[in-house]
Design a binder for these strands. Sequence first.
RNA 1: GCGCCCAUAGCUUAAUGGAUAAAGCAUCAGCCUUCUAAGCUGAGGACUCCAGGUUCGAUCCCUGGUGGGCGCACCA
Length: 622
Amino acid sequence: MKKKKLKKVDRNSSEIYADPFAFLKKEAIAEIEDAIEHQFKKKIALDPALLETPPNPQFGDLALPCFSLTKELQASPAEIASKLAADINESIQVGLQLSHGMSVEHIILTLSSARALGPYLNIRFNSPALAHWIVPAVLGNPTYGTGTQKKPKKILIEYVSPNTNKPLHLGHIRNALLGESIARLLEAQGNKVVRTCLINDRGIHICKSMTAYKLQAIRQRRTRLRRANYKLVPTPKSVGKKGDHFVGDYYVLYEKMLQQDESIAQKAHECLQKWEAGNTKLRALWKRMNAWALQGMKETLQKLGIVFDTFYFESDIYAKGKSLVEQYVKKRTFSRDETGAVYADFKGALPNKILLRKDGTSLYITQDMYLAIQRVKQYKPDASLYVVASEQNLYFQQLFKVLEMMKVPSAQRCHHISYGMVYLPDGKMKSREGTVVDADDLLAQIEKLATSEIKKREKKLPTQEVLQRARTIALAALKFYMLEVTPKSDMTFNPATALALQGKTGPYLLYTYARLLSILRKSEPDKQCDMFAYTWNKEQKLLLQLGQFPEIIRVSSENYSPAMVVQYLFSLAQDTNDYYHAVPILSASHEERCARLLLIASIARVLKKGLTLLGIETLEKM
RNA sequence: GCGCCCAUAGCUUAAUGGAUAAAGCAUCAGCCUUCUAAGCUGAGGACUCCAGGUUCGAUCCCUGGUGGGCGCACCA
């Protein structure tokens, strides 16, 4: 028989407080190492990451697959598992050293049993022990789940980056929601995040809108002048439209006009030339139209809960990009071809990239090169992230390679967060075919649906409150739907599913949260509570899940993948719903009610925190 | 033509190389006089595109097919 150890730990140490489950894993591994030494007379250091979550919770809380130990221990996996199980069970401490209430300072015992199932060693924690570590960490630690970064990094993240000629659409929504959630995850890990947005406010696209506007405005003014003697050009205000939609309409009008009269294209090109030459009148119109568009887009972004720290404007920097490229031509980093265009030669590693047109005008990459350097000077970031769709994969490889050739020190710290395309059930969105899903329309549509659902349930609710709730629910539905998919995967946007309020949706999570709060409103959890009152398998499962939260946040942050948080929260919500349907809380005995209320309060805390990281707001009532 | 990515239930999506591939929707059958039915319980539904290989073990890694997407602009 092995000698019993008695280990005392301060539960309030910051390491344990921040991630009690990681601590429990370490304890479990230490226990296994001891068992190996005892049974096989060998000292082996094991990585806690070897421990897995068993596929079936009935097996246990943690599992060690023993395959990788066979060579070292000269035994079959099943043999190893059963020997270790026997040894660990012998050494398990009988109970907890407890005082009453949550203020207990030292407790012992991390494992409750170990069992071999074939080649797997399954370990189960004991519920009270688990609860004693996890519940205080969740409820007592306001930053539970948000990592303790030793050296906080400064991270720049660029996302959305729209053109100013048309309103935001579905593609922008995926971009915006991903970017924002990733920014929040990085912040939660203790990093300093700077949100930036590049506005593509210059180029032929905006000239198209301007051309159509000019032609149309002139036409309208002529008619009006004939009728009444005053001058009037349409503005977003005069026609009662959001600025971005107003400008976008002229972009559509341009395409229509072009179909009837090809000479319009020439006019748009002249417009661009005049703009480049700095024509005062045209620049004034451009400024006005851009301001309208930008204002509209900012409203949409704000609705989505997105606020940028810094906007960069292509029109401000494109000229500087040109001289930057010229400098490096002199240094012979880049070459000029026979036509006069400047290009980067990647020697076959990548397709070569033109950096400056033969007429000397700048390209998208010209200003991106300048911007990359400018941002480093301004913020001195440790990392610079670009959230842009996967169709730009090659472009970013080229951009980063160009920066490397220029010996920009931060080139290594640039990273393209590539995400998949958004398709409609019948294919890709095409603005010319009018199949684009407009961001504002989509939001309005979900809000309308949520409104009618609320009215069905609560007839006496004041209109203001209905609209408030509808808004939150609509956003939760949309955000959950867009973030549910692994970022790098392409996705099919199915309007019916995106509008759904039941099943695996954002509103389901809000509902779960609201119900927890509803129970807590009826009875406050008493902190002086006996953790031995946890007796249900469902409680064990929930405690474990709560304990896994910090790890989920860390891993999803490292992988830039809010989808992992979505999966986790949904699964937590499912088990929670199952729990309060099956287990009485308010009507339970004093001890049980107390413990259950604490569990519920912990779940509510984690749900809210997790949803916040997805950019989803919660409701107290639904 | 070349490069990158993808293929999982009828549909939309999960699954750090590990145990019986997991959910939601849709279909079918139940549960509101007990903490909010936007909920819960149960049933059916998958040769994880095909053929090989590596491994104790492959949806996952490698090779070759097939089918789709994206890119290979002096567009953005």
